[in-house]
Design a binder for these strands. Sequence first.
DNA 1: TCCATCCATAAGTATCAACTTGTAGATTGA
DNA 2: TCAATCTACAAGTTGATACTTATGGATGGA
Lengths: 135, 135
Amino acid sequence: MNEDVFAALADPTRRRLLELLAGGEEPVGAVTAALQAHHPISQPAVSQHLKVLLAAGLVSVRAEGTRRFYALEPRGLEPARRWLAHLGDPLQAFAGPLDALATEVARGRRARRAATPSAGQQDAGQRDAGQRDAG
Amino acid sequence: MNEDVFAALADPTRRRLLELLAGGEEPVGAVTAALQAHHPISQPAVSQHLKVLLAAGLVSVRAEGTRRFYALEPRGLEPARRWLAHLGDPLQAFAGPLDALATEVARGRRARRAATPSAGQQDAGQRDAGQRDAG
DNA sequence: TCCATCCATAAGTATCAACTTGTAGATTGA
DNA sequence: TCAATCTACAAGTTGATACTTATGGATGGA
């Protein structure tokens, strides 16, 4: 649900946590021990990473006794997957959100093409970044 | 090539740059202008972002005159795509890399069960990494 | 040659993020 | 009730990173 998914995935420790949870739900202590087998890390640090993953919708929690079982939430990865897929299929992708940007870029191309190359094109673009060709 | 691909993708400005370049190669000035249509950002900042994307293998450059054309490098996204795909297919994925970790997790469970904890709690678990229970 | 343009690098700042230690809340067992 | 265990929160530190302005190198036109 969150487009901060990529930010959550940026940390290698968090990616390792997701890999661990891909095998099934685990309590915090178990994944902490698993991480510690690789490199020293404190239990609060793991809790904080899990919190980030939870906020990003990449994991879910279930309490049982004193333990909290975290599980991978596969649907949370969909925004990332979709974004990557669309970037490979630029034909129809990003039509909406990129509309304005595409317009800007297209203007740049036109400017370059039609340019009476004596005048700067981008300087105008940078300074005049207010005008919009909204069309 | 780089597993820092996720780190490169973590920044929204860099993602927007990739979206812009998905429409075809563009010189720095054009993408700078496009970004500036959204929010103020300096040209050096854009250059720095492009440098990060280049290091991550997500874009390529081509010099032409005074301009440098950046283009999306679709193959650079493959590690990210693959990682996401494998996480969705946990059945066979990560069997190798996660083997050791899974072992650790299992050992942690056993340790918790069998442990005679006199002092530390899970600290003992990571130090204890010697006993093996083949059952 | 001189100047303008395009872009990258340098240097400095400020915000953010990952980590630590310490501790508190919740649950379980004696 | 008391002690032990599991986990999250609080506060503080440190390093990374995203940004700025200033500037330099390269190219192209007059």
